[in-house]
Simulated scan of single mutants.
Amino acid sequence: MTFVVTESCIRCKFMDCVDVCPAECFYEGERMLVIHPEECIDCGLCEPHCPVDAIVPDSYPEGQRWAGMNIQYSQLWPKIRKAKYPPPDAEEFRGLPNKFDKFFSSKPGSAS
């Protein structure tokens, strides 16, 4: 089992999870984060720290749907080792359903 980031992260991009991850397995896109499944050590520390419940085990149905996305983009986006501030409009997108089609971006984040 590993953990994956789901659609709930899109446009919220809170990074509380990054600071608690001992494996440094998060990668940053322009509008969301993903977890590299081969780097995740399955400790579960990130899951309760996500304020929008965007992190789930890949064994959950929602996790299974997002596992491929996490694999794909963790190979394309830069690794992020330190949390940054969320976007200024993050709260407007908290809990918004069906964000992928409207707001997902395949562009990498800055991860600096």
Rank of each mutant, 00 (worst) to 15 (best):
H49W: 12
D58C: 12
S59G: 10
A83L: 05
G44I: 03
C46E: 01
L45V: 04
E62N: 05
K84W: 14
L45G: 02
H49F: 11
W66N: 09
V56D: 03
D58I: 03
C43L: 09
L76F: 05
K79V: 12
C43S: 12
Q72P: 00
P57N: 04
P48D: 05
K82P: 00
L76S: 10
Y73P: 00
L76T: 03
M69F: 14
C46Y: 02
H49E: 15
W66Q: 02
W66V: 03
P78H: 06
Y73G: 01
P57Y: 02
Q72I: 08
K79F: 06
G44V: 08
I55Y: 00
K79A: 10
Y73M: 07
P61Y: 07
W77Y: 11
W77P: 00
K84G: 11
Q75F: 05
K82R: 15
N70R: 02
W66I: 05
W77R: 05
P51I: 10
K79I: 13
C46H: 07
S74N: 04
A83V: 10
L45N: 08
Q64R: 13
R81F: 12
K84Y: 11
E62V: 13
E62P: 00
S74Y: 05
A67S: 14
V52W: 01
D58G: 01
P57V: 01
K84E: 11
Y60C: 06
Q75L: 14
C50P: 00
A83R: 15
Y60L: 13
Q64T: 08
G63T: 10
G44H: 03
A67R: 13
G63H: 03
P57I: 02
A54Y: 01
R65G: 03
A83Q: 08
N70P: 02
H49G: 00
G63C: 11
P48L: 04
H49D: 11
Q72M: 09
R65D: 15
G63W: 02
C43Q: 06
P51M: 09
L45D: 08
A83T: 08
A67E: 07
E62Q: 09
I80F: 08
D58Y: 02
S74W: 11
K84C: 07
